[in-house]
């Protein structure tokens, strides 16, 4: 298999309180079947051999479902191509001699911890602010007592497919998290189980989003374009409609 050499310009930042900068590296022996994060592994092995600190990046499942990985490659969260995470970006998308500029997801609400690792704890806090159905263990009725049409189940799944990676925030010029919030609000609003808490939920989650320092939505759709799960911006309309209704009802 033929190999290629790429130039990698990576954001290096030792800690949240120190300044970062872009540092240039050259990575050889790159093959087409290698994923982008495997290419970073190769770079890190070079750094180990040289006795230097490795590039810190989050990565776990390496099959596009855990949402751990994420960085901006050549200006695009998760890099070129659609419907995939950085770990599912393969080096066949690049050619010999290319330069890859690699930066962390940037948003006020996602402080950089080190190099490409950011703190996405805000996402957890937004889910804690009502992104659930209150159903204590042991109290559930038979699963088939609730009839849920196939179309509704599929629609709820489409929203529930969100992996919480944060690419939507990184792509948005306002660093808004509405796609993330609306995916959870949408999933639970479509399902009958989610109705009792529907209006309380949307208000609490949206308020938490604002508290975390995410920006507002200006309907440009960059979030959907980079979303690895191709979550639709249609859920945002549901969220906004529910939010408005809640406010009008004084929920």
């Amino acid at each position: 298999m033929s190999t290629m050499t790429v130039k990698v310009r990576v954001w290096r930042q030792p800690s949240p309180d120190k300044e970062g900068r872009l540092v240039d590296y050259t990575v050889g022996n790159v093959v087409a079947d290698m994923s982008f994060v495997e290419m970073l592994d190769v770079l890190n092995e070079q750094l180990v051999a040289a006795g230097e600190d490795t590039v810190a990046f989050d990565s776990d499942c390496r099959e596009g479902i855990c949402g751990s990985c994420g960085c901006v490659v050549n200006g695009v969260p998760h890099g070129p191509g659609t419907g995939k995470t950085a770990c599912q970006l393969f080096m066949r998308a690049f050619t010999d001699g290319d330069t890859l500029v690699v930066e962390p997801f940037r948003a006020k609400a996602f402080p950089v911890l080190k190099d490409l690792c950011v703190d996405r704890g805000a996402f957890d806090r937004m889910i804690a602010a009502g992104g659930y159905i209150s159903a204590n263990t042991g109290a559930a009725p038979d699963g088939n007592q609730l009839l849920i049409g196939k179309e509704i189940a599929e629609k709820a799944f489409d929203a529930a497919a969100c992996i919480g990676c944060g690419a939507c925030v990184a792509a948005c010029k306002n660093a808004s998290a509405v796609l993330f919030v609306s995916a959870k609000v949408g999933q639970l609003s479509y399902l009958p189980q989610g109705q009792p808490e529907r209006y309380r939920r949307v208000v609490r989650m949206v308020d938490q989003m604002q508290k975390e320092g995410f920006g507002a939505c200006s309907n440009e759709g960059e979030c959907e374009a980079v979303c690895p799960k191709e979550i639709s911006t249609l859920h945002i309309q549901i969220m906004q409609r529910d939010y408005l209704r809640s406010v009008l009802r004084g929920a």
């Binding site: 559930a140 009839l147 709820a156 529930a160």
Partner: peptide, 18 residues
């Protein structure tokens, strides 16, 4: 049952059953 109650979108048949 517990997972359905939490809103897990299991696959359904057209009639709405699991």
């Amino acid at each position: 049952d517990q997972c359905v109650a939490q809103g897990v979108p299991f696959a359904r048949e057209y009639g709405g059953l699991l």
